[in-house]
Design a protein around this nucleic acid. Structure first.
Length: 476
RNA sequence: CGGGACGUGGCGCAGUCUGGUAGCGCACUCGGCUGGGGGCCGAGUGGUCGCCGGUUCAAAUCCGGCCGUCCCGACCA
């Protein structure tokens, strides 16, 4: 193999460096001048756009509408919900000066929008007839992080945040879980990432929430990543912002709220879950380009191959496949193969003189590297099937990896051993106290990623007291 | 925010110890031959050596400060 390929650090050797190499080489993002800021380059943004569209469709299908709220939040608003301020205070960026004047009141650049949206809701909601409010916004937020990595932890983040208001606690809880499922479906069906879902322990709960639910993915290096969260806010914010409505009994009461978010961090998750030593691997559903045609030509038959490749391109494009053709004459086919593997394009279509002669094309799938000679006739249909199979297979591979790296134990020595040497998810009973949670974190750096919905009784490996299932892992 | 490493064309690096005309590979531009796994030959473009100050006839190189990045730890989606 040539040196250019070798320059992508092996995933197994140094996952951290591999990740950064890959992002640069696949042109997904580039560093900005202010620490933790990044440009999302066109290819990376195209992946995000596909995720956006998928989620947005799911939001619309569940009755939500989009809106947009201000980026700037007065300090006084942020302070209204006590736990909320405390949680976000260390990472809020403040505007204290505008033009040539100092501001009377500091203005926060939103670290999340609960407070400003609640202010509007207190003006918009008067009656039970105004409920439920089911609003989502696509936006950005700023959190001044100390350690940053492209997509996974950045100073400015693109995301969506849903903010809903309901008449009853039951409805709000239902909504919280509905949106958790929406995320879960998106991860499984579209991103091919088999996330686990469950409840956050109190210490990991969103600042100001009654209950936080999470989607947790297992990355290729055995560390967990919180990929999306859905919060049941109860009446905490309604009380703080004085959101009230007259119910059917003519009584003035506080409504119940939820919020839920999914960010560009998911792009990082896709890279970490699916990428390999050759580069990125994209599930077809979020691949901006599903397949690329590489013509194989020699001087004498260039025109003929070009003509046939053009025909094939049109045919595939007309059938709805997101197809590209690489007619660049500077690079050799081998160069193009490698380039497309780094970019994670699901299928490569080779077309050369021998193929034209045999009335076929060569299909090579990125997920397994398998090569097949497909008859020219019916190629669009074959491609469709192949793409579907790749999508399924990538979910299967990721699920196998997750299952192979999920281990149960009630023995603390074994627990520590697993986290230290193998990582992955560890399933163990937890006695529900912050002390044992803290001790495990100190000993192993592992945290409770979630409490499953179905929990079994057992013995907490640390305290020896009765406990119920929790899932631990070292997290990003 | 602590411990360590590193900042030299777009990327990866050498040169720094021992001060003396800024180099290499890749990328990029032009020409030609090539083309089924990162091809070959030739000719070119591109750098105030992270920033500020000091020492010196002379600083990428020595000294001081600052900034940034990466890795390992404490906090977070």
């Amino acid at each position: 193999m040539t040196e250019a390929v070798e320059r992508l650090t092996k995933k197994s050797e140094d996952p951290s460096r591999w990740y950064l190499d890959l992002i640069r080489m696949a042109k997904l993002a580039d560093y900005g001048p202010v620490r933790g800021t990044f440009a999302i380059r066109p290819y990376g943004y195209a992946i995000w756009e596909r995720m956006q569209r998928d989620l947005d469709d799911r939001f619309k299908a569940t009755g939500h509408v989009n809106a947009y709220f201000p980026l700037f939040i007065p300090e006084s608003y942020l302070k209204k919900e006590a736990e909320h301020v405390e949680g976000f205070d260390p990472e809020v960026a403040w505007v204290t000066r505008a033009g040539r004047e100092d501001l009377e009141e500091r203005i926060a650049v939103r670290p999340t929008s609960e407070t400003i949206i609640c202010d509007f809701y207190s003006r918009w909601i008067h009656s039970y007839r105004d409920l439920p409010v089911l609003i989502n916004q696509w936006s950005n937020f700023v959190r001044w992080e100390k350690v940053t990595r492209p997509f996974l932890r950045t100073t400015e983040v693109l995301w969506q945040e849903g903010h809903t208001v309901h008449a009853t606690a039951e409805e709000a809880r239902e909504e919280t879980l509905r949106m958790l499922d929406v995320y879960k479906d998106c991860f499984y069906e579209t991103l091919a990432i088999p996330v686990l879902t469950g409840i956050k322990s109190p210490s990991e709960r969103f600042a100001g929430a009654v209950e936080t639910f999470t989607c947790e993915g297992l990355m290729g290096d055995g560390r967990a990543l919180q990929a999306a969260t859905s919060h049941d806010l109860g009446q905490n914010f309604a009380r703080a912002f004085d959101i009230t409505f007259l119910d059917e009994n003519q009584e003035r009461v506080y409504p119940y709220q939820t919020s839920w978010g999914f960010s560009t961090r998911a792009v990082g998750a896709v890279i970490l879950v699916h990428g390999d030593d050759r580069g990125l691997r994209l599930p077809p559903k979020i691949a901006p380009t599903e397949a690329v045609i590489v013509p194989i030509w020699r001087g004498k038959n260039k025109a003929e191959v070009r003509k046939e490749a053009d025909r094939l391109y049109s045919e595939l494009k007309d059938s709805g496949i997101r197809i590209e053709a690489d007619f660049d004459e500077e690079h050799s086919p081998g160069w193009k193969f490698n380039e497309q593997e780094i970019r994670g394009i699901p299928v490569r279509v080779e077309l050369g003189p021998r193929d034209i002669e045999k009335d076929q094309a060569v299909l090579v799938r990125r997920d397994t590297g398998e090569k097949e000679f497909a008859p020219r006739k019916g190629l669009p249909e074959r491609m469709r099937d192949l793409l579907e199979d790749i999508q399924k297979n990538m979910l299967r591979q990721a699920t196998d990896f997750r299952d192979a790296n999920t281990r149960s134990t009630e023995d603390y020595e074994e627990f520590k051993e697993i986290i230290a040497k193998k990582r992955g998810f560890v399933v163990a009973p937890w006695d529900g106290t912050e002390e044992t949670e803290q001790k495990i974190k100190e000993d192993t750096k592992a945290t409770i990623r979630l409490l499953p919905f179905e929990r079994e009784e057992g013995t907490d490996p640390v305290s020896g007291k009765p406990g119920k299932t929790a899932i631990f892992a070292r997290a990003y």
